[in-house]
Simulated scan of single mutants.
Amino acid sequence: MARADGAGQVALITGASSGIGEATAVELTRRGFVVYGAARRVDRMAALAGRGVHVIEMDVTDDASMTSGVEQVLREQGRIDVLVNNAGYGSYGALEDVPLEEARRQFEVNVFGLARLTQLVLPHLRAQRSGRIVNVSSIGGKMYEPLGAWYHATKFAVEGLSDSLRVELEPHGVHVIVIEPGAIRTEWGGISAESALTRSGDTAYSAQAHALARIYGVADRPGVGADPRVVAAAIGKAVTVRRPRTRYAVPTSAKAILLARRLLSDRAFDAVITRAYGMR
């Protein structure tokens, strides 16, 4: 059972070099966890190291890297209590324009890396008969956009994987929680917009690519996109309350979008998306 704080508990967070992962590392450290922040670029985590976070190099597309990282945590701490699968990125562009090699990489990072790291940690959580696995999905796991076929496919996959895993692990005392962020001010939006423009900015899908870039540019502005600390606070709550919810959608605007998706028919939601992207 998780206590009201994280004293004595160990958390491993992927994608900790920026955005949601970095904010979560700070939040869990504040709550008393021993935190390991993992990312490909350790040099970008100097500030976290200064806050007492153990920074480790990890590439979620490299099995040896993930295995080594988990072994290091267990060697140094003897346990892992929380795994936050946050590493991921958005690959955008029309399905017709995106090479399958890039589509496979999107799945390797967003789905298979998450699944493999979970496999590596699970034997230890089961042995303890306790623990939390937090999978950072997106409202994109419940809705869709033009030019986002591969990204949304990965997040729909994370949602289904997490649901199956939740009931699979319930008898072993391990909780699985899904976090569904909406518009958050991170590097994610800029990277996604750039990929859409690179692949489809000069093709038959140019109008949609430029519309998507404009929308994501607005989302990154203060007062529009939420601070990553909002998501970190939700994760902090999820890993410390006695009985966590299965899903946390943040910020409030994310809940509104998911409510609209539940209430509207596919055709009605298509119309909303079409208008939003200036396709009609």
Rank of each mutant, 00 (worst) to 15 (best):
G8P: 05
A11I: 05
I13S: 01
A16Y: 01
S17M: 08
S18G: 08
S18V: 11
E22Y: 05
T24G: 09
T24W: 10
T24N: 11
A25M: 07
V26K: 00
L28P: 01
T29D: 06
R30Y: 09
V34I: 14
V35Q: 02
A38G: 07
A38P: 04
A38L: 09
V42G: 00
V42P: 00
R44Q: 10
M45G: 02
A46W: 05
G50V: 03
I56T: 02
E57R: 01
E57Y: 00
M58K: 01
D59E: 08
D63I: 07
D63W: 10
S65E: 06
S65F: 01
M66D: 03
R75P: 02
R79Y: 06
I80C: 03
I80E: 01
L83V: 07
A87W: 08
A87R: 04
G88A: 15
Y89C: 11
S91G: 15
Y92F: 13
Y92A: 00
D97T: 01
V98Q: 04
E101Y: 12
E102S: 12
R104G: 04
R104H: 14
R105M: 10
R105K: 15
V109C: 04
L114N: 03
A115N: 05
A115R: 05
L122W: 12
R126N: 05
R126L: 04
A127W: 08
A127K: 08
A127T: 10
Q128Y: 03
Q128E: 05
R132T: 12
S137R: 06
G140I: 10
K142P: 01
M143Y: 09
E145S: 07
E145R: 03
L147V: 00
L147Q: 00
H152P: 03
A153E: 11
T154A: 09
T154M: 08
K155C: 13
L161I: 13
S164N: 13
L165D: 02
R166G: 02
V167C: 09
V167R: 15
L169Y: 11
E170I: 09
E170H: 14
G173V: 14
H175N: 15
V178Q: 11
E180F: 08
G182Y: 08
A183H: 08
I184D: 02
I184A: 11
R185L: 11
G189C: 13
G190F: 11
G190W: 00
E194V: 06
S195A: 15
L197C: 06
A207W: 01
Q208D: 06
A209S: 07
L212Y: 03
R214M: 11
I215Y: 15
I215E: 14
A219D: 13
R221H: 14
P222V: 11
V224Y: 15
V230G: 03
V230I: 12
A233D: 15
I235W: 13
G236E: 07
A238N: 10
R245M: 10
R247K: 11
Y248P: 04
Y248A: 04
A249I: 00
T252D: 13
S253T: 14
A254K: 02
I257M: 15
L258W: 03
L263S: 10
R267E: 13
A268C: 13
V272P: 00
V272N: 06
V272W: 01
I273K: 11
G278T: 06
